[in-house]
Nucleic acid binder design. Structure first.
Lengths: 214, 214
DNA sequence: GGGATATGTTACGTTACGTCATGTAGCCAA
DNA sequence: TTGGCTACATGACGTAACGTAACATATCCC
């Protein structure tokens, strides 16, 4: 996950190397201001004008880099994503538990939680944005989950007919559901309970070194 | 579920019975136009002006009844909700399966699916709206699911320590997740697979009259 | 220095929200 | 029948944000 960017604009269709170069500091200042504002007021109330003001930059300078507010926001989010937490280890149950807990952290501790509602609305109306978001944020995450499940199957801890997508959705879905729809707080024991649910269905005898309590 | 309305406005703070009465036809025309537009263009691109035009009504007439566009939309949605599908019957597994399938229908066949993304954004920014939506749409539904689970516990088909909220979220969450975030289509076998997941964890021996195949 | 691009400033066009003012239409009660 | 009250249509308005354009200036590379 290195240096991901969303369609950095080159006005006039050129990608020219001549002329005055862009100030990289400006890019950073804009992204920083965006993250800051997102955390304060959420997606809908972020205005490009205010972002520009805080970054000490003019509005056209923002639009020269990102064609739409939504793209700016996606890229700002990517810079805030928590790093991959070390290498996988432990049983399938432990791995899934760790991934679920990390997702909870991301949704809870980073600005993502405040941003997601507005972003969801934009994604529904802007296919390109939806694509970016899924590719940059959702995709990489899913790969890690998928890998964990497949390792579990390989070790015989999960049944060979395990429905991978169902497992991912069963663990992640309720989190987004609470965040976006019901507004209910996320229970401290959610991760464990959800993983138990999955293991009860797809876990094999060998998986009963699982970290559940009941 | 009879005659639910969202804060019908009475201008000037009066709830007076004097003066010219509102034309009930006008209310219906506005709601109908709203549903129609929602289905066509989704939440974000619904404009009150266009709603008014289609309803053959002026803009202030709309605002006289609903203080905000979002409230109008919620009420329009309520009129579109599918009716309770008969009385509960069958095993806990069958009941949950039926409820899940009905939720899929609601999200797929009614305008709710197109509306939800935009509504989610508004709810995040408008606590009052969120409250209305949860009370009018989410709440009644949840009660039915909860009742089904509790009947299952009562009949001994579900374990007595069944985590009711977890069950509801595990069945409904992934649907919203797919709809709002991943954009993946909802698999035909989702309902059955998800119910299986729940029964594997919370079903008792007695529940094995369950309608699962494997 | 000259060509090319970035940047700031300022202004603009567009859209939609939500409100207000005015005149007219329709109900009720005295 | 008359007066009071409210609904309604029309048209205009204020506000706010998006996204773009024009122009002058700054900064880079050759």
């Amino acid at each position: 996950m290195t240096q991901i960017t969303v369609a950095p604009r080159r006005p006039g269709g050129h990608g020219g190397d001549s002329g005055r170069p862009r100030d990289p500091q400006t890019d950073r200042a804009i992204l920083r201001a965006t993250v800051e504002l997102l955390a304060e007021v959420g997606y809908l109330d972020v205005s490009v004008a205010e972002v520009a003001r805080r970054a000490g930059v003019s509005k056209p300078t923002v639009y020269r880099r990102w064609a739409r507010k939504s793209q700016l926001v996606v890229e700002a989010l990517v810079t805030q994503m928590l790093p991959d937490n070390a290498t996988p280890s432990g049983s399938a149950g432990e791995e899934l538990l760790a991934l679920t807990e990390q997702l909870i952290s991301t949704l809870t501790l980073t600005p993502l939680g405040r941003v997601l509602p507005g972003l969801v609305a934009e994604m529904a109306a802007d296919a390109e944005l939806a694509h970016s978001y899924r590719e940059l944020v959702i995709g990489p995450n899913r790969s890690r989950w998928r890998a964990a499940v497949e390792r579990g199957i390989g070790r015989g801890e999960l049944a060979s007919d395990t429905d991978v997508d169902l497992v991912l959705n069963a663990l992640a879905g309720p989190l987004y559901f609470s965040l976006l729809i019901t507004g209910d707080p996320i229970d401290d024991y959610y991760a464990r309970a959800a993983v138990d649910l999955v293991l009860a269905r797809y876990g094999t005898a060998r998986a009963d070194a699982r970290p559940s309590r009941r």
